[in-house]
Design a protein around this nucleic acid. Structure first.
Lengths: 233, 233
DNA sequence: CCAAAAGTGTTCGAATTACACCCATGA
DNA sequence: TCATGGGTGTAATTCGAACACTTTTGG
């Protein structure tokens, strides 16, 4: 007898918590879309989709993200698997949550329009369907922890950024103020930032130096067991 | 049209990484069982089972643990969801890994016998089926992180334990030595331990005081936003 | 010259580390 | 009395937190 027979099979979905950082607004945002079918039609929802037969969970997450944003190769990470029986009133669905980090301006605005999606500030989220609010809460907490020990936060910024922008990003993610001087000391001490000649002069007369971070250096350090530490108060 | 139709359904399993602490041996152990069906018959495997139609993931994990150990209400935590297409050669199975913490002597040895299970030292594990070695590795890493910020480690000890035993436990989990004096200072400073009159006199002539920890105190502190910190070097 | 944002150092206290000797007891 | 394991304290250092003024420049 085949031990794989006679067991229930389940719909398995992937839901993506897509974080984007709005540089001008200095706000961490979330890409949401209006659900176009019942149950809960017209309520806000995370981007989700069902896992296909020949597709890994990671692949499914990438596919869903690509379909909605046009983006490939963004930072993605599995957050948690949600499997309560009644969590989706439409049917029993087990859902694996992934979170993605992207800079908002990376997203093709045509695609954004066409899918009826919208960026919402994480600090003023609407009610989402099912357990999606809990998913966001957990993913944000994961993100807050991840950026302490990996350079994931940088994924939310464009290639070139100023230290002020980096600081504002961390404030937006932690949702509290941080000390500018201590933050700069710590982030510079990491040794992964490269100061450019160029300045950003839109937001101030004086201008702020652009920095970029070197992915190769980071990869090298990670291979050497480098422990990134950017805990902030 | 029903949006839930026409999607692939999947076998979903739960695999339990059951950690136990062997007090006399001072070793962190893992409950493994010999697989009794193909594929990979007779290879060592984690305790697993399929999620039923009317059962949450957490419930499935509890059921599997109970069946194998007779234990209810042990510390369990979801670790990660594994969903690569070819991970189980028998069929496409998506597997949610949970880890459990228990003191070895809590387990009904009849049940252990009957199920042909065996405790293995985590530092000398055999080859496991499929991706189970990776699951263990990830779960151990999760555990190492968890015991820094929650009192989960205590779940691996009996009700009464000595500070020496607690220290040996942490050594076994981190798989490196720690400084006895610094560890004791830190763990006592947490204020969650109660020193008993009684001494443990089996292993030394002098005897070591038993301690126990007060679950109620911990619950209260957790509600107050208490941050347990037992990072050790 | 002034408003607005960028940039910079120091001091203090707390926490972590490193480290070695005395104690109690049963055999 | 001695071998065995239990128990303790201190000094040095590092790390994190708090805190305010100077610089630049365009308008």
């Amino acid at each position: 007898m085949n031990p794989y027979l006679n067991h229930a099979k389940h719909l398995v979905a992937v839901d993506c918590i897509i974080f984007g950082y709005d540089l001008p607004d200095k706000e961490l945002k979330l890409l949401l879309l209006k659900r176009i079918f019942e149950p809960a039609r017209d309520k806000w929802s995370l981007a989700g989709g069902f896992v296909q037969a020949d597709e890994s969970l990671d692949d499914a997450a990438c596919r869903i993200l690509r379909k909605l944003t046009g983006l490939d190769s963004v930072y993605m990470k599995q957050s948690y698997c949600y499997g309560d029986v009644g969590r989706d009133p439409g049917d029993r669905v087990i859902s694996v949550a992934y979170y993605a980090l992207t800079s908002i301006r990376d997203i093709d605005s045509d695609i954004v329009m066409r899918n009826g999606v919208h960026w919402h500030s994480v600090s003023r989220l609407p009610d989402l369907i099912f357990d999606h609010n809990a998913m966001v809460k957990k993913a944000l907490s994961d993100l807050q922890n991840d950026i302490k020990i990996t350079p994931a936060g940088f994924e939310l910024l464009p290639e070139k950024f100023t230290l002020v922008q980096l600081e504002e990003l961390y404030k937006a993610i932690y949702q509290h103020d941080i000390d500018r001087r201590n933050f700069r000391k710590k982030v510079v001490a990491l040794g992964i930032l490269e100061k450019l000649e160029e300045k950003e002069t839109e937001t101030s007369k004086r201008g702020a130096y652009y920095y970029r971070y070197n992915r190769e250096t980071i990869e090298k350090l990670k291979r050497e067991g480098f422990y990134f530490d950017l805990e902030v108060s």
